[in-house]
Amino acid sequence: MRRTRSITTIILLALLLGLVLLASLTLGRYAVPWDELYGFVVSGGAQQIGETTGNVLLHMRLPRVIAAVLVGASLAAAGCAFQGIFKNPMVSPDLLGASAGAGFGAALGILLSLGGVGVEICAFVAGLVAVGISYFLSAAIGRSLSGVLVLVLSGMVIGNLFQAFTSAVKFVADPNSQLPEITFWLMGGLSAVRESDLIWLVLAAVIGGAGLFALRWKMNVMANGDEEAMALGIEVKRVRLAVVAFATLLTSASVAVAGMVGWVGLIVPHLARFLVGADQRLLLPTSMLLGATFLLAVDDVCRSIYTTEIPLSILTSIIGAPLFIYLIARTRRTH
């Protein structure tokens, strides 16, 4: 009964995402009317509309919209998975230092003038490296201690360390050109997304998303804590490593393309849990759909309310903070 209702919710959310996606294509500095978009979609080509409109739609707006969808879904899925295996609803996907690492990588790339793709690769690799260090550090020091606690602590340490590295890079960066670029990059945004980025983003999202989806049931059991999960037949360490790896792939790829986008990975799983409950079998797809819709809508606002673009993380925070407070207040009341 509840399951049927949840599945209906998921279908409605998918429809909503489709609607927001179409609307996003029309919005922006160069407005595309609905009827032209309709003609374009129905004919499946650029023939019926002007060359400029076609260019704007295909080569500027569509890549950006797709990137927003993938980044939103990826961050939400990673947050959902992390909250599940760390048994804590206050956890976000940068818990183990993925964002801090990626931020440092990007800053370093900008400092070394590596150019767009170089910066992205730097950010992606540094994100993976930061989480890798956190994980193996915890494995090395925490043999007898509770695995989760040591992992979270090493994640905090490594995250802070990489933030310090980022500050050091900012300190030595050229204050006229590099420093502003680093600062803007760290605030997050999708304006620099290129068509060539998409293939990597799609690849990361598909591998990470499919990996987490395959582990959806095990993540449910992991929410009981290590000992109970083991007694229920879960190889706890192996599953945790796999979830951390897939979630980090998603987070690092997202941060590499979109910069630091806060709050999505924290509040979207909450919102989704509110709609369909805690079962990851439903929670994961719901989170991904909600995350995609949320980031797409926020990005639309970022690029259309003002003549220059507003960085993404400013808006996600302004929307996210009160929404989060509201959700916490609601949970308290029902408990």
Partner: peptide, 18 residues
């Protein structure tokens, strides 16, 4: 024990099938 998330009773019992 108290899980961190509001699972339903059926979801908790289904975990036994793991």
């Amino acid at each position: 024990h108290m899980p961190a998330f509001p699972f339903t009773v059926k979801e908790v019992v289904l975990q036994g099938r793991t």
